[in-house]
Nucleic acid binder design. Structure first.
Lengths: 353, 353
DNA sequence: GCATAGCTGTAAAACGTTTTTCAGTCAATT
DNA sequence: AATTGACTGAAAAACGTTTTACAGCTATGC
C-alpha cells in the first residue's frame, strides 16, 4: 500500500507538495499539481486517516448518541444523517444510552476522547440541571471545541444548536383536526411529562382546545412512557374515569401509544373512528401498518437527521464562524388516515419497506 | 489535557514504562507500576486514541454494514452488538448500502481504509460471484488481515465466520404449526428468491409439507421483496389463483409481508384465523402491534448481534488463532399469537417499548 | 571471580501524515 | 541596478503514542 512518500517520489516532488495539493493548504502551480494528481491516481494512493487525524487532531467522524436505539424513530434519522455523511466523507459512530443519565455522560466522554468532529445528541433528560447543558455547549478536548447539536429538544437557550420539530404546533394540529371532525370530548395520552417533548405536545393540544372554548382537565390526561403497553394502560384509565360514553377523541403523544390505545378501545367494543377518533404522533411506519391505519402528526425525521448532520459538519469545519446557536425548528404536519377518516386510503406507498 | 510524558514525569519514570504498564507490554516491577498507576489516576490521563492507533495500526472500532438501515430487523441486532462493545471498549461505526452492490464495495473499502478492527457484513447479494466472497475472507489492509463476519447468511463455505438463524428449520416449524392447526391448503409468500435468506425459508416449508405427504406447487408460492406492500400484492395473487375457498393457511417470509397479507385477506372478507391462518417470520415488534397479533418465527436478533460482535473481537485480538471459519447457527423458534390461535394472548409484554 | 543470562528501565526510532520554517526565483518598484 | 515582495518549492519539526534497541544491574553457573 503506497504512502505519501511514494507519491512524492513518483511525482518528483516533496511530500509537502503532495500534502498541499491534497488538502489545498497552499497554492501549487498547475504543472506540479497535475503531476501529483497523476501519481496519486496511478498509485491509487489514499491518505492514512490515522496519521492525518493525529496531526489534525480531528477524526472525520461524527457521533450519534441515542436514548434507545430500538425506538422506531431513529432509523429514519440515521438515514438522513447518512445521506449527508456519504457526501462529505465522514463516518458515523453510534452510542446508546439506554435512557440512563450516567451512560449518557459516559458516551459523550468517550466520543470526546476519540476526537469525533461533532456529536448529535438526543437527550431525554432536559430535567437535568442547567450546568450540564452549559458544559455541553462549551465542550472541548485538549483545547479544541467540540460542536454538539441537540436532536428533538430545543436547547438553544443553553447555547446548543438544535434541530427539532415543533411539538406545540403538532399538538395544536391534532386538536384542530379532531375538533373539525366533530369531536368534543377529548383526552390525551401523554409521554413522560418531565420532558418537554411530551409537554409541548400537550401544551399545543390544550392551546387549540382553549381557542375553541374547551378545556382539558387533568383527569383527561394520562401519562405513559411512549411504549405501546403504556398507551394501552393509559387508554384504559381514561375510559374508566370518563365513563362509557364520555370520550369521542384521543390524541396520543406517539404512534406506539396510539397503537396500544387502539387495542384498548377495541377491547371495550368501541369503533374507530365511529365511536372514538384517534390521532398519533411521529408518523412512523406503525401508523401505516396498523388497522385502522393511524392518523398522526408527521415529524420530518429524515430531514432532521440531514439538518443535524450538515449543521454539525459546518460547525466542525468552522464555516459557521462564531455565530450563535442555531434553532432549526421544523414544521409538524397532519397526516389523515383511517382512525379519523373512514374513507382514507391505507397509503402504504409511503412506507414501501 | 495531560499526555503520556506528564504521567512519566510525575511518576519519575520514562514514557516507555508508562506505556508498558498501560498495555502490559512488558513486565514492570510492582513499586514502579504502582507509581505509574497513581500518576495516571491523579492526572486523569487517558491515552490519545489517534496516536496509539497510528502506531498499532488498528482502530478500536468495528464496522457494521447494513443493507437498509430502516429495516425493523437491525435495531435489535445493534442492541446486541452494543452490549458486547460496551464492555470491550470498541466503537461501532455504521454504513448502509441501500441494497446497492456498488455501495457495498464502497463501504467495505472505506471501513478497511479507516482500519477498523473488523467488519460485520449483512449482504443480501449472495448471488455474487464466488471470487467476491473469497476476497472478503482474505481482506487485509497494508498487510494486516481484516476479519469479517457475515450476518444472516451462512458464508462459511467462503471462509467467512457467519452468524445466522436456521431458515430451513424456521420454515419447517411454520409448516408443522399450520398443519397441526388443521390447515391443508397452504401457500407461501416468499422473499426475493435470488437470496438464500428467502430460499431457505421456502425450502424448510416445503420439506415439512413433503413429510406430511403434501406438495407445494409453484402456483402457491408468490415472491415479494420483504416489504409490506409486496406482501399485500402477493396475497392478492395467491387468493386469485387459488380461488375463493382455495387456501386455509399462509406462511410469509417476514413479518412485514405478513402484515401486508393480513390487510389483503381482510379486504376479501376472510377471517383470521377463522378462514385463513397466517404465520410471519422474524418476530419483530410488528408481530405484536398488529391485530390480530401475528404468529411468527422468532429469530434471536439480539443474540446474533452479540455473537457477531464477540466473534469479531476475538478474531481481531488474535485469540482465535488461525482456526477455520466459525458457523454460528442459531435456532428458530415458533411464537404463537392470534393469527393462528384465537385464544392467544396479545403478549406485548415482550415488546414494552 | 568471570562470562552469561535474565530482569528492568530508558533513550531513541518509528508510525504517516500535516504544518512550519526556510530558501530560492522572478517580477515589480525605487 | 538594487531592494522588496510575492510566489513556489522542499527540508524538517511536530502530532502522541508504541516499540525497538540498548544499558545497567543482579543472580547463576562453571
Amino acid at each position: 500500500m503506497p504512502g505519501i512518500k511514494d507519491v512524492a517520489q513518483r511525482a518528483q516532488v516533496s511530500i509537502a507538495t503532495v500534502s498541499n495539493v491534497i488538502n489545498n493548504t497552499r497554492p501549487v502551480s498547475a504543472p506540479l499539481r497535475q503531476r501529483v494528481k497523476d501519481a496519486i491516481d496511478e498509485l491509487g494512493y489514499v491518505a492514512d486517516p490515522m496519521a492525518s487525524q493525529l496531526k489534525k487532531r480531528r477524526a472525520r467522524t461524527i457521533g450519534l448518541v441515542t436514548t434507545r436505539i430500538t425506538s422506531v424513530f431513529y432509523p429514519y434519522v440515521i438515514d438522513g444523517i447518512n445521506q449527508v455523511l456519504d457526501q462529505s466523507g465522514y463516518d458515523l459512530v453510534l452510542h446508546d444510552t439506554r435512557d440512563d443519565a450516567e451512560r449518557e455522560i459516559h458516551c459523550i466522554r468517550r466520543l470526546t476522547q476519540s476526537r469525533v468532529s461533532g456529536i448529535i445528541l438526543d437527550t431525554s433528560h432536559d430535567k437535568r440541571d442547567e450546568g450540564y447543558f452549559l458544559n455541553l455547549a462549551a465542550l472541548s478536548h485538549r483545547g479544541y471545541p467540540m460542536p454538539v447539536v441537540s436532536l428533538e429538544l430545543d436547547l438553544t437557550r443553553y447555547g446548543l444548536d438544535s434541530v427539532f420539530a415543533d411539538g406545540t404546533e403538532g399538538g395544536d394540529l391534532a386538536a384542530q383536526h379532531l375538533l373539525e371532525r366533530g369531536c368534543q370530548k377529548l383526552a390525551h395520552i401523554a409521554g413522560p411529562l418531565h420532558g418537554s417533548l411530551a409537554q409541548d405536545r400537550l401544551l399545543g393540544f390544550r392551546r387549540a382546545l382553549l381557542r375553541a372554548g374547551l378545556t382539558l382537565p387533568d383527569s383527561r390526561v394520562a401519562a405513559g412512557d411512549f411504549s405501546q403497553a403504556s398507551g394501552y394502560r393509559a387508554a384504559c384509565r381514561l375510559l374508566e374515569t370518563a365513563g362509557s360514553d364520555g370520550l369521542d377523541g384521543i390524541f396520543a403523544a406517539n404512534d406506539q401509544m396510539a397503537a396500544g390505545a387502539c387495542h384498548a378501545l377495541r377491547e371495550k367494543g368501541l369503533a374507530i373512528p365511529g365511536d372514538i377518533r384517534l390521532v398519533g404522533y411521529d408518523n412512523t411506519f406503525i401508523a401505516s401498518i396498523v388497522r385502522p391505519s393511524l392518523t398522526t402528526i408527521d415529524v420530518p425525521k429524515t430531514e432532521m437527521g440531514r439538518l443535524a448532520a450538515s449543521c454539525l459538519i459546518e460547525r466542525a469545519e468552522g464555516r459557521t464562524g462564531l455565530a450563535g446557536p442555531r434553532a432549526m425548528r421544523l414544521p409538524a404536519k397532519l397526516v389523515v388516515r383511517e382512525t379519523t377518516d373512514p374513507d382514507a386510503e391505507p397509503d402504504w406507498a409511503l412506507f414501501d419497506w
